[in-house]
Design a binder for these strands. Structure first.
Lengths: 337, 337
DNA sequence: ATGAAAGCGCTAACAT
DNA sequence: ATGTTAGCGCTTTCAT
């Protein structure tokens, strides 16, 4: 195994100089750097990250915690994070909380603490108090995407406002009986589903409609969940709403499937609006409010790397609000007269 | 930061004994182990994985290479891998090749070689010769899920047979004009799309039908791709097939959407069959052939860990074939008379 | 069964 | 700008 000393010998310098030349920390003359790089190249030298980490205290590795992988949102965030990390030469260690409670405990109690990461990014993770204190105990930069966690840097969208805007679109079209397929709290993050529910309610009150609790159903953000919720919401023609707002596009897809099964035409008999601008929203013409989770992942990675690079700067907590964009397509129209 | 010496002091033993007691390597009396564990617990000691790796040469970290994250298949495999690794105390470093060519090169040339992983799992990665030799140069266990790579352990399904069975179902129903929305080769793995195409062709020849090249369209495994392929396949009533086999359920979803847009009833005017048994296949009643990528991920992790634990045993190459299961639902029926 | 001590391959003072 | 040297926190012979 070729090590730093082999490179040093070939380049005719000390190992310290090789370290400086290759890492970019500390002054090295251009000529020397040149020779060192050539030698490293020739020997196909690759650094031992373990030795480097041990000596320097920096791992060049970021931990990313996700509650689940099988939803569009998470993989998008993850891709964004990954691409920034790769470009900066950082590795990504994935912690997936989707397994059983034991796995989750092990991750919070052991894995995060093996000093293997310089920082962590938590993606819409619903953490309990004990877990929060463990994250703080890391004494490492932590930024949260989506779910605001007390005292940590956060990056997300304004869920209340976004939901409000979508539902406002429906009321502006003339809808008054609008149902909400809401997300289950506690599944991703506790507050997000609530904020979207509040945005929905507020938009109704704006036009003088008192939200009817019977028109809100919760589901697990999946197509299947949205489908089941819509079936129960739509099957009785007497109480049927004229529009449905789903708190995620995937649930909206489920609503569309249910509507078709029940012989309801969209948007003739029923308007449907979603939330996300999922990659498949366009193809079914879904009106929705777009967020860009990949971009959020990139920003989160940048934030966290900035803190890693300059650990001394006081990381005042903050909550970065990313923009959302209303996208009108063909699943929404005025209600039948 | 509490280290091994603190634990040793508290337990009244040497650091060597602590190391042995906690790692399980080497003989320690039950009583001593007990005391050491208690001391470690009390001090909330967590090992420095860097120091441990440096000294032992083992990292307890597995690299997982995926070409892309945004498809059901990959996240399922990843979940399976992850759950086994967590239970064995291993970390998972994620390498996502989905970025640009530069990122990909960096991953193969640098990241994999930082000696940060004990082994790697490649998930349906289409690798070129240079990349294969780099994987071999790792001199670490590598197992591939899905895409067979020369000289490496592989685990996957029999794509030809699976496709054959689905199409056989269609011919048994009486279909003769059967189209294939095939996967684009080179996107995931080169051979898989071809094998499915061959299975499709073979099932047709079984009933004396020579496959019509005009009835095969390729797409990128996405809903959008399947939709576009189906539009061009179905729009002309004169040349329209009576059934479509899609090489992934996600593409089949796109076919279903296109059929509806064109006013074709399924399965009345058109039968549709997919491949995967995606989590949403049931909800739209899609007939398909099920594979279990999560299970494949678990098996791959087990295989690779077994090799990591006993590196001396000759890792004869092998190709583990996992079962598939035909699932008949409601999108297939005999063609109209 | 346990301890002493020599590394593992780097980095970072410190010195020049 | 470069070299010398002392660790980083473990694991693993080798003794006992």
């Amino acid at each position: 195994m070729v090590g730093i000393n082999d490179v040093a010998a070939l380049a005719g310098v000390s190992s310290a100089t090789v370290s400086r030349a290759l890492s970019g920390r500390g002054a090295v003359s251009a000529a020397t750097r040149e020779r060192v790089e050539r030698a490293a190249e020739e020997l196909a030298y690759v650094i031992s990250s373990d030795a480097s980490s041990l000596a320097s205290g920096r791992t060049r590795n970021i931990g990313v915690i996700v509650p689940y992988l099988g939803r569009w949102y998470y993989t998008e965030v993850l891709s964004g994070v990954q691409s920034v990390l790769v470009s900066q030469g950082f590795d990504l260690t994935l912690f997936n909380l989707g397994g059983d409670a034991g796995e989750r405990r092990q991750i919070f109690e052991q894995f995060l603490f093996r000093r293997r990461v310089d920082a962590a990014i938590a993606v819409s993770v619903e953490v309990d108090d004990d877990e929060i204190s463990r994250l703080h105990a890391l004494r490492k930069p932590v930024v949260c995407v989506g779910g605001p966690i007390e005292g940590l840097r956060t990056l997300g969208i304004d869920d209340l406002d976004a939901a409000h805007r979508v539902v406002e679109h429906l009321t502006a079209l003339g809808h008054r009986r609008i149902a909400h397929v809401a997300g289950l709290p506690g599944l991703r993050d506790f507050r997000m589903p609530m904020n979207r529910q509040h945005g929905y309610e507020q938009a109704l009150r704006d036009v003088g409609v008192e939200p009817d609790p019977a028109l809100t159903r919760t589901a697990d953000f999946s197509v299947r969940g949205g489908h089941a919720a819509a079936r129960s919401l739509l099957e009785d023609p007497a109480t049927r709403p004229t529009a449905v707002f789903a708190s995620s596009d995937e649930m909206a897809f489920g609503v569309l499937i249910a509507a078709r099964e029940l012989g309801l035409s969209v948007p003739g008999d029923l308007s449907v609006a979603g939330f996300d601008d999922h990659e498949n929203a366009g193809i079914v013409g879904l009106t929705t409010i777009a967020q860009d989770p990949q971009q959020m992942g990139r920003r989160a990675a940048e934030l966290v790397l900035a803190q890693v690079e300059s650990p001394d700067e006081p990381a005042h907590s903050m909550n970065l609000v990313m923009p959302t964009r209303f996208v009108e397509r063909t699943t929404t129209a005025p209600p039948r007269a």
